[in-house]
Simulated assay, not measured.
Amino acid sequence: MSFLDASEMTGGYGAADILHGCTLKVEKGQIAVIVGPNGAGKSTAMKAVFGMLRLRGGRVTLDGEDITALSPQERVKKGMGFVPQVNNVFPTMSVEENLEMGAFIRADDFRDTMDQVYELFPILREKRHQNAGELSGGQRQQVAVGRALMTKPKLLMLDEPTAGVSPIVMDELFDRIIEVARTGISILMVEQNARQALEIADQGYVLVQGANKYTDTGAALMADPEVRRTFLGG
């Protein structure tokens, strides 16, 4: 069984299903990327894994434990960290206060983790007393990822982490994501910049209309002529 095993997920909002038997798996320390056209159900699949969407079918296990019935808060305690695409920082709080908010579930001393976040994102140490709302888009994304890391997650989920940032900032964020995975944390990421994301992915999922269209390693998907033509612009 994979470290994260979200199998045959079916569900949606109201009476309509958006996910139709979608399956996502991530091994320990792997980077798994979900790509696909707009409206494919990518973010919905991520929310289903995190418990923000009640499933009508399928199940989710983390590290061998069935967590299908758990709330998002309970999943955080089990080792999930989630960074939404928008509204992912407290704008009127300082960078350091944002990071401290990420440690709300911890009873131990979290200063070592905060130091690790500052080593990963040096600009945050420099701006730690500045309000998060005053930062650039890329810096706010670093705050959001850093806050999720403060929970000491086993699985970090990122919904469009490079949305609205420059290509240079995107490359830097991807480099940091690779560094996080090298520490043994599993990564599940939805990303519009499909080509760049698949380049760093151990595992890739192409979703179409809430179902798995292609599943393979990132390299294999990049090399697949049909995937390249249909989803990567040739």
Rank of each mutant, 00 (worst) to 15 (best):
D5P: 10
D108A: 07
N98Q: 02
V49H: 13
A211Q: 14
F104D: 12
G218A: 01
T68W: 00
M1F: 07
G41Q: 07
M170P: 08
L19M: 10
N193W: 01
D224V: 03
R229C: 07
Q141S: 01
G36N: 06
V83A: 03
L156T: 10
P153K: 07
L62Q: 06
V165W: 00
R195Q: 04
Q85P: 03
D17L: 10
Q141C: 00
A201W: 08
G12S: 13
G29C: 01
I185P: 04
T113G: 06
G164M: 06
E199S: 12
K77I: 11
P161G: 09
S94G: 06
D175H: 13
R75P: 09
G11E: 05
G36E: 03
V89W: 05
P161M: 11
M1T: 13
E100M: 15
A220F: 05
V169H: 02
F110Q: 15
S2E: 07
G184C: 05
V208C: 07
G51S: 09
K77F: 10
N212R: 04
I31H: 05
K77A: 14
S94W: 01
L221E: 02
V89N: 00
L120T: 05
G137D: 10
G41W: 02
F90N: 14
D171M: 13
A48Y: 04
S7P: 10
V89Y: 07
I187S: 10
G204H: 08
A48H: 05
T44D: 01
G218S: 03
A15T: 15
R176L: 11
T162H: 01
N131C: 13
T162D: 00
T10S: 14
V33Q: 08
E96N: 04
N87M: 13
G233T: 06
T183F: 02
V33H: 01
R195F: 04
L120P: 06
A223I: 08
E199D: 08
A69K: 04
R128F: 03
M150W: 10
A69I: 04
N38E: 00
R54A: 14
G36P: 06
I105N: 13
L99H: 05
A6V: 08
G14S: 10
F121Y: 12
Q30R: 13
V143L: 03
G146W: 11
E65Q: 15
S43V: 11
R54K: 15
R106G: 00
R125Y: 15
L55Y: 09
V60H: 01
I105Y: 15
G164L: 13
D216R: 02
A194N: 01
M80C: 11
D202R: 03
L232I: 00
L55Q: 08
I200E: 12
G21P: 00
R125G: 14
F82L: 14
I185F: 03
A223Y: 01
G133N: 01
Q139E: 12
G39V: 04
R147T: 07
